[in-house]
């Protein structure tokens, strides 16, 4: 029987991966260890290719994405799964079909895993209640983007050997960012200290209650940090004036060498992409091979998604 969860799976006792919030530090650690092992495998490893043989992974993106959907697709293929990528934003939704109708239709094709992105917070959670297989949240509104946080953590861990005790600054459009919320959840659970740096219009209310320290002055916020995590200024989500101009934004909140000099000398620069060069990050800084790990993040994305697919499908009975 495909799709029924097996509660006995102690490795990852969740049917879905909807967010970091529901995970324990030990579960995160195990996922990262598994991802680490995938990162070290050659991409044509035959043992890996047997793991999801006969399984169907369906990518269901209600919001356009290239890198995340490609990354999931590649991860699923490396594990030997059959992958179907659906960009729903362009088809049935425009014909008036509801989210759940679309989900139910696709569910009838019996996918083992659905990888879902949606522009509304909570939409993936809603969908997960109505399908038989496992669901991975590939980003829902402003809420969570768990695989991004995991791949960021893996990147950091591979570079610095740990997460515990690190000082991480997350800078930019926290308000609209699911990446920020997932990263705050993950990093604080793993014992890192998190600062958020942004103009107050881009900070959600009571963000300090999530266990972070708030800075509006980037120079103060970057002092002595180990990691500088930049966020994309989500120009497409800016209804109304959150910041007066990109010029002013870059002056105060863009990462350039002058501001970077305040962080630890070997501080790493991260960005979930896609970047607005010259808006939140200076082009040269972004491309600095000694400091920027942005390319590595993309690389780790595949390994992390392989680990998530592997962990979730271990829950499915009838696994070969």
């Amino acid at each position: 029987m495909i799709g029924s969860p097996n509660a006995a799976n102690a490795f990852f006792p969740h049917r879905h991966l909807l967010g970091i919030e529901a995970l324990s530090a030990a579960e995160i650690e195990r996922l990262l260890d598994l991802a680490d092992s995938y990162a070290n495998l050659p991409k044509d490893d035959e043992r890996a290719r047997k793991l999801l043989r006969g399984r169907t992974v369906m990518n269901l993106f209600f919001e356009t994405s290239t890198r995340t959907s490609t990354s999931f697709e590649l991860a699923a293929k490396r594990l030997g799964a059959d992958v179907i990528a659906m960009s729903v934003g362009t088809s049935s939704i425009k014909k008036g079909e509801t989210l759940l109708d679309t989900a139910m239709t696709l569910n009838a094709m019996k996918p083992d895993v659905m990888v879902v992105r949606h522009n509304e917070s909570g939409a993936v959670n809603l969908l997960s209640q109505k399908v038989d297989g496992s669901v991975i949240n590939a980003g829902d509104g402003r809420h969570e983007h768990p695989t991004q946080a995991l791949l960021d953590a893996l990147t950091i861990r591979r570079r610095l050997g740990k997460l515990n005790g690190l000082l991480v600054a997350i800078c930019g459009d926290i308000l609209h960012s699911r990446v920020a919320r997932s990263n705050i959840q993950l990093l604080t659970k793993m014992g890192a200290w998190v600062r958020v740096i942004a103009p107050l219009t881009l900070l959600p209310s009571n963000i300090d209650r999530m266990g972070v320290e708030v800075f509006t002055d980037m120079k103060k916020g970057l002092k002595d940090v180990d990691i500088v995590m930049m966020l994309r200024l989500q120009l497409e989500r800016m209804q109304g004036a959150y910041v007066p101009s990109t010029r002013e934004y870059f002056r105060f909140y863009g990462l350039d060498y002058a501001k970077l000099a305040l962080a630890k000398p070997d501080a790493l620069i991260m960005h979930p992409g896609p970047m607005n060069r010259g808006v939140e990050i200076d082009s040269e800084v972004a491309d600095d091979i000694n400091r920027s790990v942005i390319r590595e993040q993309v690389e780790m994305g595949v390994a992390v998604r392989m680990a998530c697919l592997d962990a979730l499908t271990r829950n499915l009975t009838g696994n070969q």
């Binding site: 919030e21 829902d140 402003r142 809420h143 969570e144 209310s205 009571n206 209650r209 999530m210």
Partner: peptide, 18 residues
Amino acid sequence: AGGAMNNGELSTRLGIPG
């Protein structure tokens, strides 16, 4: 305009405009 719940810690956590 655009809000769907009370603004505060919970709206921040859920990522719902408050």
